[in-house]
Design a protein around this nucleic acid. Sequence first.
DNA 1: TCGTATGTTCAGTCTTGACTGAACCCACGG
DNA 2: CCGTGGGTTCAGTCAAGACTGAACATACGA
Lengths: 176, 176
Amino acid sequence: MRKPVEAGLREWVEQVSMLLEQDGVPRMAGRIFGWLLVCDPPEQSLEDLASAVQGSKASMSTMTRLLAQSGLVDRVRLPGARRDAFRIQPSQWQTLWRSRIALIQQATALTERGLELLSGRPPAQRTRLEELDRQYRFFLRALPEILERLELEEPSGERRARARPARGREPARHAT
Amino acid sequence: MRKPVEAGLREWVEQVSMLLEQDGVPRMAGRIFGWLLVCDPPEQSLEDLASAVQGSKASMSTMTRLLAQSGLVDRVRLPGARRDAFRIQPSQWQTLWRSRIALIQQATALTERGLELLSGRPPAQRTRLEELDRQYRFFLRALPEILERLELEEPSGERRARARPARGREPARHAT
DNA sequence: TCGTATGTTCAGTCTTGACTGAACCCACGG
DNA sequence: CCGTGGGTTCAGTCAAGACTGAACATACGA
């Protein structure tokens, strides 16, 4: 029986999940992610999570897997431990933004295909799509550069030395 | 009864709607948007839309309003015409990206609030959130600049006017 | 080998919201 | 003043999927 999550934090976690929900993330998954952002210690077992976000074990299992698959969360097994632990994946933001880029790529592919379909038509009919296409191409060019800049700006010298003195050494491993 | 939409285009429109769906746009609204991107003429009545995307009049009414409210589509009344017409709003992309920025703003607000809540805690517990907060701040700074660049690159000077006065007067059908 | 602790999967419930036909409202032309 | 075309709104249906308890699978310690 864990100590109940402080009220302020619980509410905050809920807000995180509601924000994530707008991006298609299930509520419960959002809560887990939110909680993992602020919990202490950073690694939490399924049971920890279940009690922290007040969800079923089944949800924890399903949603942690979903989060792990989308690269937002790491599943780790501390050596000798009996249970798995979860923590937010340090470079989750990369995953996030790369998936966003992937979306834009899809969109660009679509506008191109659309222009093909309209190839025979009068120019006036194509301008709308052409404009959109131009936009997407622009962002496709610009976004990676932005990400680059973000990475350069990194103050804490990238996450190399992010070594957290968790009890015991970490398997710093990222399986899947 | 309009001529049925060409098969290739119909499929393309469907793909557009499925892509938009990932951003929380209802299927039918996505179809309308897709269709408005390629149709001829660019202005379409409710009836046109209904037959083009094979949906009910009710859907057309609801979804066009939704699209208009989110700034993706314009409702216009050609002078003397009896029916309203819809066309994609020329600067829809701005709306799109601005709403994206708004999301990031919300997120930033959340990370800040979170850091407040953790103010008393040991630094080690705060790093995760601090990192995320940094990321969001960065994008909040970077994105407007990007949009600016996109606008400058614009070949057709048309979209200089950011809020073009709607040609047909706003029908007082419903406010806000 | 068994018993137990962990995690996964299944079947079912319940909520949400997209979509529809039909009723309704309103402005305009007679 | 009616009648009609155009648009909105309502009530209801339907499907998707989030969430759950419980059954199931697996590995490990005794």
